[in-house]
Amino acid sequence: MYHKLKQNDKNIYKLILIKIVWRWGFVYECIPEVMTFKECQNILKVGKNTLLDLIHTEQIQAFKIGNRWKIPKRSIIEFIQYR
């Protein structure tokens, strides 16, 4: 079924899979090593301003490439575990 989906549908399918894995406490293997800002928002279920606040207060480590934020997976895992 997965190979018959359009690209946008594949991305949605991956996000659903990540949420299922996350919710059931499985290993964080389905999450990419470095996430985009939007992927991080979806995983944490927070808005743009909240995520920016977390980054600027250094609760979540992130870096910029050009004008785009990139967030390492380990940063999100640490934030969730120690929150």
Rank of each mutant, 00 (worst) to 15 (best):
I18E: 04
G47P: 11
V46E: 03
L17P: 00
Y2D: 12
W22C: 01
I20N: 10
E58P: 00
G25P: 01
K19C: 00
T50P: 03
I80M: 04
L17H: 08
V34H: 07
I18G: 03
Q41C: 12
I18L: 11
T50N: 14
D53V: 08
I60M: 02
G66T: 06
Q41S: 08
D9K: 14
I12E: 15
M1I: 09
N49M: 10
V34G: 02
T50E: 14
Y28I: 02
K45G: 04
L54C: 03
I60G: 00
K38C: 05
Y82F: 05
I43F: 03
A62Y: 00
V46L: 04
L17M: 14
R74H: 13
T57C: 13
L51A: 03
E29S: 06
N42C: 07
G66S: 07
I77V: 15
I60D: 01
W69V: 07
I71T: 02
K4E: 13
I16P: 01
L15Y: 11
Y82D: 09
R74F: 08
P72K: 05
E58F: 06
I18P: 01
K48E: 14
V27A: 07
T36E: 03
D53I: 11
R83P: 01
R23K: 15
P72D: 06
W24R: 14
M35V: 05
Q41V: 09
M1C: 08
N8V: 11
I60R: 01
K48C: 14
T50C: 10
K14G: 00
I12W: 04
F79M: 05
K14L: 10
G47F: 11
T36Y: 03
H3G: 01
R74V: 12
D53Q: 14
I80T: 06
R74T: 08
I31K: 01
K4V: 09
N42G: 05
E29Y: 03
K70I: 05
T50Y: 10
I43K: 01
N67M: 09
Q81C: 09
E58C: 07
K64Y: 08
K6T: 13
D9F: 10
K70S: 07
M35S: 04
G66P: 02
